[in-house]
């Protein structure tokens, strides 16, 4: 244990996504994004079932990243918080660079743009997609080293449903721009924290603060789709 715990956790996470990317995702690779995401729902349900059995909720669990706190202008800041912010920035910059500068990144962009054509051009689609899954798993694993430090008591539900506010950021970024996703997520988080201390007549603001990502992403969607476009199949458009 000890020193191997953290890399072990990250690798565990990455192996699960890699297994999905290698064995199951290819079976749905020609379906639309919606069916693919339902595939992920299936995996989520599967893992949640296992966790429900294995995770004894009567024993509170914690996972605290080694951390120190210090005070800046009357605010207590922990090194983990700074690390989290820095990590997010590094990921945004790093992934952007990876996608633009490396050949694997270029291949990933090509596949995202047009999978069939990429395959015809000789991009090893399956291998590249598995790599993407593996990379996503590693990022997720790293996130879940840091995230539990901000949660009082860990249970599988709380951790699983961190995906909702995350989706809020991703929707605002339209699954395209990492920078917009980053800033949107920060804004969502800041709004939520500002709503937390309300009490008395404004207690409801605090109670309902978890609705923030939903409100923000619905507003974003209204903005994105302010002009209706008709999607025409294939060459009908030209």
């Amino acid at each position: 244990m000890g020193i191997l715990l953290y890399p072990g956790l990250v690798l565990n996470c990455a192996l699960i996504t890699l297994a999905y990317g290698w064995f199951l995702a290819p079976k749905l690779d020609r379906r639309d994004p919606l069916a693919k995401s339902l595939g992920m729902v299936a995996v989520a349900l599967f893992l949640m079932g296992i966790m429900k059995d294995r995770w004894d909720t009567s024993k509170p669990r914690n996972l605290h990243f080694p951390s120190r706190t210090f005070t800046v202008a009357d605010t207590v800041v922990s090194t983990t918080q700074i690390l989290a912010l820095a990590f997010a920035l590094v990921v945004v910059v790093g992934v952007n660079l990876f996608l633009q500068r490396t050949s694997i990144g270029t291949a990933m962009r090509a596949i995202a743009n047009n999978r069939e054509t990429s395959a015809l051009l000789g991009v090893p689609v399956r291998r590249i997609e598995a790599m993407a899954w593996f990379g996503a798993g590693i990022l997720c694993g790293c996130v879940f080293l840091l995230l539990p430090s901000f949660v009082k008591s860990l249970d599988q539900g709380t951790l699983t449903w961190f995906v909702i506010p995350a989706l809020g950021g991703a929707i605002v970024g339209r699954f395209r721009s990492l920078w917009i996703t980053f800033f949107a997520s920060i804004v969502i988080g800041v709004i939520e924290s500002f709503l937390t201390p309300f009490s008395g007549a404004l207690q409801f603001l605090s109670d309902f603060r978890r609705v923030t990502p939903v409100v923000i992403s619905v507003l974003a969607i209204l903005w994105i789709s302010r002009r209706r476009t008709v999607v025409l199949a294939g060459r009908e458009m030209s």
Binding site: K27, A35, G39, V43, G49
Partner: peptide
């Protein structure tokens, strides 16, 4: 009871794979 979610996750995956096969058969996928 505990594994019910896993069971349905598995069922959903099987369903998706099967419907993909059916669509391929009908030539509805690329």
């Amino acid at each position: 009871n505990n594994f019910s979610l896993s069971l349905f996750g598995f069922g959903l995956m099987m369903n998706l794979i099967q419907s993909t096969k059916a669509m391929e058969k009908k030539g509805l996928l690329g």
